[in-house]
Structure formats: C-alpha cells, structure tokens
Design a protein around this nucleic acid. Structure first.
Lengths: 169, 169
DNA sequence: AATGAAATTTTCACATT
DNA sequence: AATGTGAAAATTTCATT
C-alpha cells in the first residue's frame, strides 16, 4: 500500500532543505533558501526535484488529537493462524476502511501484526475492536493503552551533513 | 512534552476543512473553500481560527523513509523497575536527543514504555539500542521489527458530519 | 459574508557558468 | 549539472463595507 521510494542521493543542501520542511512546512521557498544559503531559485528547483523524486512524499496539516477528542492511543497486537492471500486482503481492506487505525504493520517475532488506533474513549476502542474482529478471524488480540505521549514527531532522522549518503558508488 | 489542546467545538464546515488539509496541506485557501462551499474569505478566517485554537497544530512535509535510507521500523517495549522523577527525566532527555526515536509512550499494562524507532539497518538499530540502554537503566527491553508497512497515515479520524461533537453542552 | 487591494510567494522561461 | 535574473500568475492577508 505505502509506496516506498528507493534511496536517493542527497547532498548536504538537500538534507538541510528536508530538515527545514519536515519541521515547518509553511516556510516559503525564500525562507528555506535563506537557511540553506541558496538563492530562492536554486532552492525552489531542489525542492521541486525532491518532490518529483518522491523524497518529499506529501505536505499535510497535523491536527491535535486532544482538540478533536480522539486523544486515546491504543496499540493492538494481533496474532493469527491464517496467512492466505485472501485473508490478508480482507484484513487490509477492513483496516483501510477504519480511519481510527492510523498505523498497521506486519511484524516479525511473537506478534503477527501491530495496529495503532486513535479513539475518543475506551468504549470507542471497544467498538473498533468489535468491528475488527468481526471483519476478520484473529487468533489472539491484546491491547495496550498509551497513558502519556512523551514524544511524537513525523520528522525522520536525517543523515548529518558530514556523512552524506551516496548510493551510487 | 506534547501540548494537547482541550476539545474544541467544530461544525461540519470545520470538519471538512480539517479533512481536506490533513490529506493535502498544499491546498490553497480558495481550493479548500470550493470543496467546503464557503467563500475564500470565510474559509480563510476559519482556517486561521483553527490554527489559533491549536486544532491545526502545524504543517509539515512528510518524507519517504525508504528514499532517506531509514526504512527499518522497530518497536521497542521497555520494562523498568525505576520510576522516580529523576529517572524519568533522564529517560525523556535521552529519547529527545535521539532523532531515530520518532514516538515514545508511557503505557498501561505489562510494558512500561513503547518506542517507535526508525533506522537504516539492524546494525543501526543495535547502535540506538546501546545508546539507550547506556543512558538509562532499563530492566527489560524487547524489540519487534516491522516487516511490512500496511497502513501509515497522519490523518486523524474526524467526527462525521452527522455526529457533530459538542463539548459545551 | 463579500469586495478589493497590497504584499508575498510560486512558478517558469531564458541566459550564464 | 546546477545557478542567477527577471517577470507573470497565483495566493495570502487584511482593511473596509
């Protein structure tokens, strides 16, 4: 589902542009250019290329879960005995149809799948749980509630200026 | 750390504005206004208010983990016997200093803390693990690797138009 | 809630190194 | 290949009605 670009060669200026924009997407091209010590135009073209290459995947507004009344975060560990393509497609479709499930991974180890769910209350979580388990056969489901969000960022770790990542060696 | 706004009363037009902007933050005010059936100006004022009220927390560029070469996602479950303020502060500071840790929660139940870590490789994860365990005393640490990212969105579930959320009853 | 207008920003064609 | 110049088009922002 989530298309992943292959690694891209990025020079220090690109890295700094990306660092700025993943922290603050409202920065104008001119503002980014100033931080990175480029002309507005050189910077604009780099940003465009980073978008075209899929390094910048999208730009979004991040909303406040508390303000929206969905401040309860639940991690759901799923084990299953089923592994057919058919079953997987059903599971994926069920999750896709549930906006409360914001992340969904197939895992290694003990647990087969991990879901991150964002809801208003425990009662709401129960509704999500029921919808999920009625849509697809799950052997074992265990839920863990977040008591406190201590860090949450969409900013990915970037290579430092020094260690530029070259993939075309 | 993560400031959370109190629930805010939102009418259907606000909800639709938020839905649009959390999917596509590049939409111009005019483009959003058209979708929501508002004049550009009415829409502009609503967006400004949503920002001022902290419902829209920020705007960011989302980068592609694969393109950046940090496509390995690890969930780290931590148990500890320590619970002092001092210890907690040390833990928080250590995590804050590690850009590879993108999420960090205090949990209910079996596990005390859950971290989501984004790295280039297993070897890189080992380095993060060592930095973490050398910074703070952790009783039990277990790591689970994501094999496949099946869904990943920053879009929070929004109340449907029908069920408007009123918190001022 | 609509009008209008100034300031800013984006976007790109063309020339340059 | 990547940068600088300049200019048109689009957008943001806000004062006024």
């Amino acid at each position: 589902m989530t298309s992943r670009a292959r690694p891209v060669a990025l020079d220090p200026a690109d890295i700094r542009i990306l660092a700025a924009l993943q922290e603050d997407g409202t920065l104008s091209v001119a503002a980014v250019a100033e931080r990175v010590n480029l002309s507005t135009n050189a910077c604009w073209r780099r940003i465009k290329r980073l978008e075209d290459d899929g390094v910048i995947r999208r730009r979004v507004a991040l909303l406040d879960a508390g303000a929206l009344g969905v401040g309860v975060t639940v991690f759901v560990n799923v084990r299953t005995s089923e592994h057919s393509d058919e079953w997987t497609r059903t599971f994926q479709a069920a999750v896709d149809a549930m906006p409360e499930v914001v992340e969904f991974y197939r895992m290694s180890g003990e647990v087969d799948y991990l879901l991150k769910v964002q809801v208003a209350s425990i009662a709401d979580y129960d509704a999500v749980y029921r919808r999920l388990t009625s849509a697809v056969k799950l052997t074992d489901v265990s839920s863990a509630f977040a008591m406190e969000e201590m860090k949450h960022t969409t900013a990915l770790p970037l290579p430092t200026a020094r260690a530029s990542n070259r993939y075309d060696d």
